[in-house]
Design a protein around this nucleic acid. Structure first.
Lengths: 356, 356
DNA sequence: TTGAAAGCGCTACCAG
DNA sequence: CTGGTAGCGCTTTCAA
């Protein structure tokens, strides 16, 4: 004790259970029990302790506790991208859900050009109770490392085909199919697809559902542009290319809303009208999609549901975080009709009335 | 030891320094030293340890370490709002800066209707190295609690007048003044202000700078609308009210970009043109501000600079996080000219060419 | 340079 | 119901 004093003095000394107990003539163990809801303690004693704790600003050191309980109450959330307005929506919902279960979010933003694998090791040092990976792809090696360390991992809005990791995902194939269906119902015959990040499952699946269903309906995909990123700029330039072609598409399905918004701006810059000349459909339903200049028809991702499911499979409200079964959970999105798709059945179609 | 075995067996046992040492015929202390850059250790020994650590997936438990060093390497970031696109911009920049110094972000989203004071206690349990509070107001009581616990606190994009807490802030007064100046230069005579969250210093200061400078220039403030929130909807409805007045303003300064965007949509919905009928200026410079339907003239907040300053006063790159001097640091924003303000000097003015 | 030992603040067991 | 005590995994003395 005296040996350490020298160093300890210079360091921050917060109120400890021992100190608090001493002031009350109680043992440190008893103080600890006052903050547990399983240990037995006299209600009056607890009250005295809680009261004194309040006035001294004492709260049990969670980190010390976690050393014993092996529970940090920390959930790591890994994200690559906060610029796309879809992800703040996700993070907001996710963080609130996590916090409402008494857990906390340790946030990892993956810098551009870096990979999840680069941050995962430093993440593992924190002994988090679970890892949620969004908008980023995890390697099989890292999945193995997490499994070895017994850390539950859930991929959110992503999955890795063939990798045994739990995933919560919007049913992007079904979403793509619904778009194809809708474009068929509204008598479009030259639909194009503009993709985002090339290898993202979100991109791949939306494209697949879309083209598959088109094929079933006997409609030829007029063009498949590669955006390369889920960004406004990617949507803009891809649409611009499409519009300059001798034979234009009569409709474009963009891999995300922000891309679609960029696309609409490009179409208009080319002096064409949406939806009269070209119909546009997006994916996500971010707030901007409903802004008057766009009024974008889109597939809404069921974020609340996806977050709910994440909480369920990890057992946020259970006493212990679970290691989720390693399967992919798909949740259906819904098509939100606004004003960027017109019915081409009659030449002089009226624009659909706005919804939502 | 044997007593605990029973429980311990059921719990996750990760690789520890002791285990690693045993495998190498070294003591636990030596293993610990291999991961310190101050302790003296034979380079060869260190190499052997690091190598074995790698193959076993061992990394020192930061939480156990923090018990002794009193450094968690965790910075708490408190935010009320992720929906306003300005804050994801801030969080992205902040998180990357924090991570690049080897620190981590513990994120706290304040649920609607709740107050910072409600989450701060649970935050303090984590013994974070510093607390960054954005888009939320801290009470003097809580500031005192943090001070007592010796936790450095920095307010980001907010300050509390009269409260001795360090703050990093865009110079909103100067920003408001610049807008007044610009509107005067372009010969506007009936400027209006649309405020956001009523008591936010960001709102108050922008309003004050704006009206003060107008007064100095001998221009009467035509109207001061209370939005109540920095939201699209608030901007829309406030502008709608303004536009329905018998005598319309010739220009509106909105407390934020998203409000301004809402305002533009409202103005156009009333069959008026921006900027021909009404000029519009925003604040923040979010990505949407430059989208073609808006091309919003606005005051850009120097986020990168603000983050840099935050890192500096807290000493992120220093061995120890500092308790920053409790003063307010103001950083200048810059006016970005786009196309929502016209020069009314000549009746038939040409719209200014786009910049940026 | 290394090992032994103390102890960070806490929980969980054992007696009483 | 309470106090004593043994560690959780680590850093940091002190001695060798």
């Amino acid at each position: 004790m005296t040996k350490r004093r020298k160093t300890a003095k210079r360091l921050v000394r917060s109120v400890t259970a021992e100190l608090l107990g001493k002031r009350l003539g109680l043992s440190q163990s008893t103080v600890s029990r006052a903050f547990s809801n399983v240990a037995s303690i006299h209600p009056e004693t607890r009250e005295r302790i809680i009261k004194e704790a309040h006035s001294l600003g004492y709260r049990p050191n969670i980190l010390a506790r976690s050393l014993i309980t092996r529970r940090t109450n920390i959930i790591a959330v890994v994200m690559a991208n906060l610029i796309d307005p879809f992800y703040p929506l996700v993070l907001d919902e996710l963080a609130q859900r996590i916090q409402s279960s008494g857990l906390q979010v340790l946030l990892f933003i993956i810098p551009p050009g870096k990979h999840v694998d680069d941050v995962l090791p430093s993440l593992l040092q924190y002994k988090v109770d679970a890892i949620l990976i969004t908008s980023a792809t995890v390697s099989s090696r890292m999945a193995a490392v997490c499994a070895a360390q017994q850390v539950p991992v859930v991929l959110f809005n992503r999955y890795v085909p063939g990798l045994k990791v739990a995933a919560i995902c919007c049913d992007n194939v079904a979403g793509g199919r619904a778009v194809a269906e809708y474009l068929n119902d509204t008598a479009h015959v030259r639909p194009a697809y503009v993709g985002g990040e090339r290898d993202a499952t979100t991109n791949l699946d939306r494209a697949r559902g879309f083209t598959e269903r088109l094929q079933e309906l006997g409609i030829a995909l007029h063009a498949h542009e590669v955006g390369g990123a889920f960004s406004y700029a990617a949507g803009y330039t891809a649409a611009d290319r499409l519009v300059r072609q001798p034979k234009r598409p009569d409709s474009i399905f963009f891999a995300s809303d922000v891309m679609a918004v960029g696309g609409i701006d490009a179409i208009r810059a080319a002096n064409l009208r949406v939806p009269e000349d070209i119909s546009v459909i997006g994916f996500d339903d971010v707030p901007m999609a409903s802004w008057p200049p766009y009024e974008l028809t889109t597939v809404r991702q069921p974020i609340a549901q996806m977050v709910y499911e994440t909480a369920r499979i990890l057992g946020f409200d259970k006493p212990a975080i679970k290691n989720p079964s390693r399967k992919i959970h798909f949740m259906k999105g819904i098509l939100i009709e606004r004003n960027t798709v017109t019915n081409r059945r009659r030449r002089l179609s009226l624009a659909k009335p706005a919804q939502a």
